[in-house]
Write a protein that binds this DNA or RNA. Structure first.
Lengths: 168, 168
DNA sequence: CTATCCAGTTGCGACCTGCAACCGGTTGCA
DNA sequence: TGCAACCGGTTGCAGGTCGCAACTGGATAG
């Protein structure tokens, strides 16, 4: 997957960055699913990414500085993948893409509640979320009583999951 | 390029839709460049898309109902490609993606003024733009004195182009 | 009548995708 | 101590996609 720079258009450069099946999906899992290890990304992926593809994508995302990688202090073999400021700022893009997808694509209820909350929350929620992500991934310090958007999104997802389970 | 539906997640489904190098770029040219014919899309593309790829993408975008196609009344061989409501609603996605790209990727000044205006204009400008696109592509009737965002974007681009030319 | 334009199509090599099997090293547990 | 499970990947392979260049048959303009 070469880095080309065919033109300086922001949309074109964005597609040279994300114009493939998996890059954004991997970032989504790190961002919204808080998956930080290779194995988590591999096996807990809703879509079943192949291990070689995941390895190649992570390598590429590292080169593009959209993720960073460090050793896990508690396990010699584990690597921890983190978002960078560059990828944290994709939150509004995810929000808009999710809003569009929710409206125009055959999404499932459970997997789209997060997108719904992100859409309804608007820029204020996105900022709170990005702030939280900076705490988690960049080690930024935050107020002890700071809002956890991630927990809210996760709770809403699990509520839907339970509701869907009941309906069966 | 198969249509898979590996999961009902809006981000995943969006990537199944746009997860390739060219789909969004083609839509960008139709939307912002007002390119309506195959040849315009082929030869005036800043990035130089290949004709077979363009043909395949247009076919796919037709299947996905992201563009529509009709005969040109003034020329028996020409086909006119138009946006649909579904693709017109991608305007906010383009705006956010453009904003992110402008901040984090090596964009050129000329090709990113449009993105800058779209970003600064916010949701109000996006709505005006989408309304104009509905007039152009869906044949919706609009007020005679309605604002032309397309013309504003184009004018700003040409201003930058001239300024860049002078600097050489 | 001829040059040009029209929307694509074809052939080809290189690269990418997806799957399954596998690797050497580490860890947790009996 | 022994061993199964887990760790982050790698390898091989078949099939599909990408990108380029050359080309097609029909329509149009002068």
């Amino acid at each position: 997957m070469p880095l080309e720079e065919r033109s300086g258009c922001p949309i074109n450069l964005s597609m040279e960055t994300f114009g493939d099946r998996w890059s954004l999906v991997v970032l989504r899992d790190i961002m919204f699913g808080n998956r930080r290890h290779f194995r988590e990304l591999l096996t807990q992926s809703e879509e079943g990414i192949a291990s070689n593809i995941l390895a190649a994508r992570l390598k590429r995302l590292l080169d593009l500085r959209l993720v960073s990688k460090r050793a896990d202090p508690g396990h010699k073999q584990k690597a921890i993948y983190s978002l960078t400021e560059k990828s944290i700022q994709l939150v509004p893009v995810f929000a808009m893409l999710g809003a569009w997808g929710r409206k125009h694509l055959p999404v499932s209820r459970e997997l789209s509640v997060r997108a719904q909350l992100l859409e309804e929350g608007g820029p204020a929620l996105w900022e709170a979320f990005m702030d939280e992500l900076r705490g988690i991934h960049l080690g930024a310090t935050r107020a002890a009583d700071a809002r956890s958007v991630l927990a809210e999104l996760q709770a809403a997802y699990e509520r839907e999951l339970a509701a869907a389970g009941c309906r069966k």
